[in-house]
Design a protein around this nucleic acid. Structure first.
Lengths: 143, 143
DNA sequence: TTTAATCCTGAGTAAATTACTCGGCTTTCA
DNA sequence: TGAAAGCCGAGTAATTTACTCAGGATTAAA
């Protein structure tokens, strides 16, 4: 039940971009240094995030990355879904639900995983990057 | 963010034991067949569950396994913790919390993982095996 | 116009984890 | 006594993770 380094690093890096949202593009190398993450690994993570439309890049000298939208418009769940795949403790309850298993009609445990998925989704989609940089306890405004 | 086969199989097997709670020990081979799980793999899982005190075993012919407590006394969270380790999306927010990371005082993301951990724990500790075998949607009595 | 900074990308890889299997011992009922 | 069951340590193939490597493309500034 752990998230991987990819999701953890990616979220931390996105928080930095949120902090620097009004100060122009931040080079990846700077983020990597600040967060003590391998910059080559972070590069791969950023490519995924860019392909997903969560960040923009500026190439060349003085280049770097910026959030594609305001921090308040980016949910933690958006980031996690890009880097970790669908939020679901087992494949058979993923929202796209390819993996309809043959025992699903009588499976006693499916309901558990659905409830768990829903509560995880609720938390992750309730927190935006604006919340993340606001206070240390990441409590969103509406709570 | 997936649980492993160990946790998934273990929970399904425990649900069977809950169904058969009043009919004497159930042999592992029968559960394995019913749930289409490798019986040798399930054996390992059951050893963990027994060491954790969640099930009892009866050796010899006509032997098998039984729940160590009534289904209503066993929480899904108890089972998951035995088979998957502490419920925590990252090590640094595990309840025993060995892994206090050096950046924890200023980490922007720690609060997210704490909230996620709490909501996962709440769901898993709110559902007992009695709930699991009661209805298909696993809703506990109090909801 | 060169140079340095930066992003972009595919390929490779060591280590760890997962999901098992193997083999053999021990206990108990009939 | 023999079959049915649990007990358990060791091994292993496949997969995933967490990276590294090597080099190309783009742009600002000197």
């Amino acid at each position: 039940m752990k998230i991987s380094a990819k999701g953890e690093y990616g979220l931390r890096a996105m928080a930095i971009l949120a902090l620097e949202y009004h100060t122009g593009p931040v080079p990846l190398r700077e983020i990597a240094k600040r967060e003590e993450i391998s910059h080559q690994f972070l590069e791969q993570i950023f490519i995924s995030l860019r392909h997903a439309g969560l960040i923009n890049s500026v190439r060349g000298a003085k280049g770097g990355y910026t959030l594609a939208k305001a921090p308040a418009k980016i949910k933690v769940g958006d980031i996690i879904r890009v880097l970790e795949g669908p939020i679901a403790p087992v494949d058979c309850v993923a929202k796209n639900a390819e993996a309809a298993c043959s025992r699903s009609t009588f499976c006693l445990t499916k309901g558990i995983w659905q409830r768990l998925r829903d509560s995880m989704t609720e938390v992750l989609d309730d927190i935006t990057l604006a919340d993340v940089i606001k206070k240390s306890d990441s409590e969103p405004g509406g709570k």
